[in-house]
Design a binder for these strands. Structure first.
Lengths: 116, 116
DNA sequence: ATAACAGTTGAATGATTGTTCAACTGTTAT
DNA sequence: ATAACAGTTGAACAATCATTCAACTGTTAT
């Protein structure tokens, strides 16, 4: 470990200084990583995709993905805390839907990237 | 467990049938999840952001993020296997750069979502 | 040759995370 | 009241993953 807090020399001082100067304030990178974490699981991706097609209840989603209500509910909670989905109770049934259209845009871009 | 392979009834048969019919072939959801996994870590997000500013070598990136060459190199390998970055050796130094401009677009969208 | 430095690699470790299980709440119907 | 079903929750378990450490490769300069 050296003066820079790492185990090597800084080779291009000007480059590092320039990039560091453009770095955003605070810790916006963690927020960004946390957003992408919600898309970084096959089950959650399928849930979001399904809700991008139609609003659905927990049981329908469980049947669609061949998983238990519990597993689905746990993942929906993560998505709810991340403000990607919202829910509304009607009697015994809880209907989930996308929180906003941004999720659809992110999907479109993701699919575009992996199919090229 | 029932006929559907889950622990509940299908409440809206038509909805599930309709959504299932629109489901993409194969397992494109895993590919999508794997793409987002690469963005789902603070270190990798910062590496990608830095390389979106300028091409850099491993030592510069290590200094910039206050991390060891080894940790940086491991993460760069993941990004390389995911085709998000590429590298080129010039003498002792290995320069990394974004594989294409798609990464920049994904960043723009991500930042747009978390700052609203 | 050999020293010095940039970078890579594999195993090990600790932390994070997805699913299961069992127990629970809330609503509807008998 | 009570049974039945939709959904939630917390603990436990297994799997995944990021970082560390030590040993290694490749290139340059002496």
């Amino acid at each position: 470990m050296n003066q820079f807090g790492c185990d090597c020399d800084m080779i291009h001082e000007e480059v590092v200084a320039r990039v560091r100067a453009q770095m955003p304030e605070g810790d916006r990178f963690s927020g960004l990583a946390n957003l992408y974490k919600l898309f970084a699981d096959r089950t959650r991706v399928r849930l979001l995709w399904a809700l991008a097609q139609e609003d659905m209840c927990v049981c329908d989603l469980a049947v669609l993905l061949n998983m238990t209500k519990s597993a689905i509910s746990h993942q929906l909670k993560s998505l709810r805390l991340g403000n990607l989905v919202k829910c509304e109770r009607q009697g015994k049934v809880v209907y989930y839907s996308l929180a906003d259209n941004h999720v659809r845009d992110i999907f479109a871009q993701g699919f575009a990237h992996i199919t090229e």
